[in-house]
Nucleic acid binder design. Structure first.
Lengths: 329, 329
DNA sequence: CTGTTAGCGCTTTCAT
DNA sequence: ATGAAAGCGCTAACAG
């Protein structure tokens, strides 16, 4: 490149990096030659010399989950604006897989890392994170045992709001349907539910196993048949909400007349189903933007101390709670 | 690293690359030191020297679309098995954005590329692809104007099967709902529909604009009201199917009794909605595996000539077509 | 079987 | 304002 332009490599380097301290006509000349050749600087060489790969790692449990997909989408958008490429890795929510991911990022000398910690945490993973030696921002779940920045949804207050919404409209027998109890998000949501239930003097009705349709059906049936029955269901995450919906449909239970339904997490067809489903919607975009911005700030030293930021979720009232269009307080 | 283990760098290099031509005890020793140090070879240096970045590029219109998300998921899985990292970029279906993506991959010296061509093709993009100079495999859509491998869904026969399914069960007034006509996939599906309709001696009823709810509603309403009406709708892609579903729901038209519904593309809640929706399901996993495998083969020279492979889609019969459980031919 | 050496393409002093 | 030269960590001859 330098040879063809008839200049020194130093000059080319200066042009690549913004063109400071280069004579205007020289700058124009080199830029023109670059253009003609379609020259792109070799990132490997730059990385080797400068110890900055211009790459960030993104570790998520799965890219098929719309929640993580939206996260990834925002990350890619913001990273490229700052000239970072993103290497994406899926952990399938397993610590060993996450560790393999970290090895890959270490080889590629990623400059920073956004990670949704696998639900099965492990000491070994934390150690390897330390070894990586680059800024890390945890997303959606805290990285327990490591003092790094975290961007979370305000799960506790959101669950409280959702539960209160049902209570304020006269529901008294509210079943909360889990949720992997190992997940911080699920724990927080459950606690929010319990707080609202407790303050209203109601009895908590908790079923944590809705891991598939059969268990969701068993749990709901059991609670319907017990003394007092139930008049509402609060799904702690999208899958349990969907399963509750299916169970109610299949048993021909009228929603919301007989049983109100409200879910945590919005999902594509929540508004298409009939009845449409009332949900607490996480502000994924803002969570993702905040996380990416923070990581970049950590990477260039603008922020050094770990931050913990919670982003509010919002209630989207639809038909399934039964108070759609009603004058809600 | 070499210093600490008390050996030459060549030996370390050999160990990294499999340990051939290294004495067994030496190999064990070096491996042990590596382990203790948590040493990972610097990929930037290896890339610089070997001109192979061990990185592949993945350009998709959007990661939020479940179809592309599943594609990405499979790519990541297979790439990491062969020790490749994947840099993922979204084109938002725009050629200029795709070109920016290619620049990024060129800087990072990606060894290969999987791309879903933006719907607005462009000569400039093809040129830049040539300039990249690495194996390319097109996914889902052909890269028109460039003779490279492509993995597509068998859209034509699949649309024919879907249409025939309706015809074989007595439907005669079948509305086909588009679909960006610039997309190769949509064109092929439309042609499949037309073939089946033509062979049955029926009249094609085509509405290509279902780009939002309002246009879908206008199109469907128009066709319902016209002489003869319609007795079935074939959605050419998931969004038009969902919109058709919503329109029918909102107009209290009984599905499938009054109008049958069948869609191209399966989607998460197609089985949850009531009635559940009959669809042609693309075999995304197999498409993705085939594409990734083929790219890797191109990269290591096992395959040199461009391949064109179409993967069959399959009919998933649910309730919305009206022939669920019925004895279908 | 193992080490010495010369670059890969950049960035970065240090001269000029 | 520009260039010469050293070196980032690795691989690939080539010697020994």
């Amino acid at each position: 490149m330098a040879r063809i332009a008839g200049v020194g490599t130093t000059t080319v380097s200066r042009v690549i990096n913004g063109g400071d301290r280069v004579a205007p006509e020289m700058l124009a000349h080199v830029r023109k030659v670059m253009e003609e050749l379609g020259y792109e600087p070799n990132q490997a060489a730059r990385a080797l010399k400068s110890a900055r790969s211009k790459t960030i790692g993104l570790i998520i449990p799965s890219i098929v989950d719309p929640f993580f997909a939206e996260f990834a989408s925002v990350v890619e958008l913001m990273a490229r604006e700052k000239d970072y490429a993103v290497i994406f890795l899926t952990s399938h929510d397993r610590a060993e897989r996450g560790m393999a991911d970290l090895k890959i990022l270490e080889r590629h000398r990623a400059d920073g890392l956004l990670i949704v910690p696998p639900r099965t945490g492990s000491k070994a993973l934390l150690d390897q994170l330390t070894q990586l030696g680059v800024p890390v921002v945890a997303f959606d779940r805290p990285l327990i045992g490591r003092n790094c920045s975290r961007i979370l949804c305000g799960n506790f207050p959101a669950a409280e709001i959702a539960t209160k919404h049902l209570i304020d409209h006269g529901r008294k027998r509210i079943l909360v349907l889990g949720g992997d109890p190992r997940l911080h998000t699920i724990q927080q949501r459950l606690e929010g539910y319990e707080k609202a239930i407790g303050e209203a003097g109601l009895e908590p009705i908790i079923e944590m196993d809705a891991s598939d349709y059969a268990s969701a059906e068993a749990a709901i049936t059991r609670r319907i048949k017990q003394k007092g029955g139930i008049d509402a269901i609060f799904g702690l995450y999208n899958q349990s909400t969907i399963r509750a919906y299916e169970v109610l449909q299949n048993r021909n239970i009228r929603v919301p007349d007989e049983i109100s339904l409200i879910g945590f997490d919005d999902f594509a067809l929540a508004s298409t189903l009939r009845p449409s489903i009332t949900v607490m919607r996480q502000n994924i975009t803002e969570m993702a933007q905040t996380a990416t911005r923070l990581l970049l700030q950590h990477m260039n030293g603008e922020v050094t101390s770990p931050q913990q930021i919670e982003i509010e979720a919002h209630l989207i009232v639809r038909q399934s709670c039964g108070f759609h269009g009603a004058t809600s307080k």
